[in-house]
Design a protein around this nucleic acid. Structure first.
Lengths: 244, 244
DNA sequence: CGATGATTTGACACCTTTCAAAATTAGTGG
DNA sequence: CCACTAATTTTGAAAGGTGTCAAATCATCG
């Protein structure tokens, strides 16, 4: 048995980035939560195309959700940061169509899908929150689809950097050296529908223009205004999101 | 006042494509439903970037959800068919970031977002359904993102044709001449992240190979096996979806 | 039967991919 | 702490898919 953290003492809640819950709600979440799991960087949290009764909240670390084509081409659908809920996306025949993989060592709280109905029945407010989380994640996928479909390579990269930087800051990653950025260029390429080579050349150009800097696993935005202008990206203002 | 159809007599429910609801649930849906609206083809159901308290169920007709960049580039996020729920996607500062436009004359049932909480509280089962609908729509956006990011032009088109054909059949559009297909090539281009010209040339080639046929506003699939193979597309098996 | 919108074609430019390989960084065992 | 290997990042060159521009053909409709 690993050391488990009580939901009442969940470090995420202390960040002040989440909408508050009543004691009873947190009690329920605590009972809903089955256990906690640590996943090593590069390891799957959810395997594409498998049956799984598990749902997760990413408590610590980064991850990403993706789909692949039979011939191996991979598309990253969205990146997951601490506080994100995983597994809400629809299943088909009991199997998830996407995979989730940890980018860093990740800690996830594990829930059971078959207990979901209980949550809706006993705490409609939490059900409401789940819908909100689902809808919010779709918003991000929407934005990615807009990027991949209609933005040029440099615009896409600018947009992604601004987006991730904003999200990381919103959950408390402030550091003069920049946010922790555990992403390889291959991930960026896979998220933006670009080839690795072209991703590299484009990033090289942006970095050369002094728009940003990536070093030592950290991303430092040097000219957020220029990046936002380049991407025609009105970064989504982030409000407090629910935490289950 | 227009002629309104009682939810109990909703023609959609008779299709047998939706999960059943209790009498009480339908009563509530009826009370949740504010009124019904007819939207002409090409007219907006929801304006991008505006504040709106309205939610909809598309009762009849086709529509699509989209986002645009400031310079006018447009990306269609997904197509909406009868039975689809509209407006669940997150709002930011009370404004929807996407737009919805009717492709044909459309009939929508109008609900109020501020009544949503009531729904969750009184009928958790319906709240559960809403989450399902939200998750299911995200599934479709996921698939589109995978397409736009990783499939070639002809693969994307093959995938979209199979996908729409399958959905149309699932809701009862069976006709030896093919399904009703109220989409212009510009829509296909905008949905797949392609230019109109290249979309046309690619479709011409596919049609020339006898894979499909579009005529008189109908889509006839001539070789579904080849299309699925081309797109490496395991069409999502459609189960009964909830109807609100 | 014009008028407007949609589809179709051809030519050409260019952004992005692919192929190959070097340079750099990170990771591991001695 | 250094040698060694794997992983990641960078570069260069060339091929190719897709976009852009322009104009013709076709369809729909009042």
């Amino acid at each position: 048995m690993r050391k488990e953290i009580s939901c009442h003492l969940c470090p995420l809640r202390k960040r002040g980035c989440h909408s508050p819950n009543t004691e009873q709600e947190i009690d329920f979440i605590q009972s809903f939560k089955e256990y906690e799991r640590e996943v090593a960087a590069g390891q799957p949290i959810l395997r594409e195309g498998t049956a799984s009764d598990e749902l997760f909240t990413l408590r610590e670390g980064w991850a990403f959700r993706y789909r692949t084509l039979p011939d191996g081409r991979r598309q990253i659908l969205n990146f997951l940061l601490p506080g994100d809920f995983i597994g809400l996306q629809a299943e088909i025949n009991g199997k998830v169509l996407y995979g989730v993989e940890a980018l860093t060592t990740a800690h996830v709280c594990v829930f059971r899908r078959h207990n979901l109905w209980d949550l809706y029945r006993k705490f409609p407010s939490l059900g409401y929150d789940l819908t909100w989380l689902s809808a919010h994640q779709e918003l991000i996928v929407d934005e990615n689809l807009l990027s991949v479909g209609r933005r040029s390579a440099s615009e896409r990269i600018a947009m992604l950097l601004v987006h991730l930087h904003k999200r990381a800051e919103a959950i408390g990653d402030h550091d003069p050296r920049g946010i922790i950025f555990p992403i390889r260029q291959q991930h960026i390429a896979d998220a933006l529908g670009l080839s690795l080579v072209h991703t590299n050349k484009t990033m090289r150009r942006l970095e050369g223009s002094g728009l940003h800097e990536i070093r030592g696993g950290r991303l430092k935005i040097r000219n957020i205004h220029a990046l936002q202008k380049l991407a025609e990206y009105d970064a989504i203002p982030l409000r407090n999101q629910p935490l289950i």
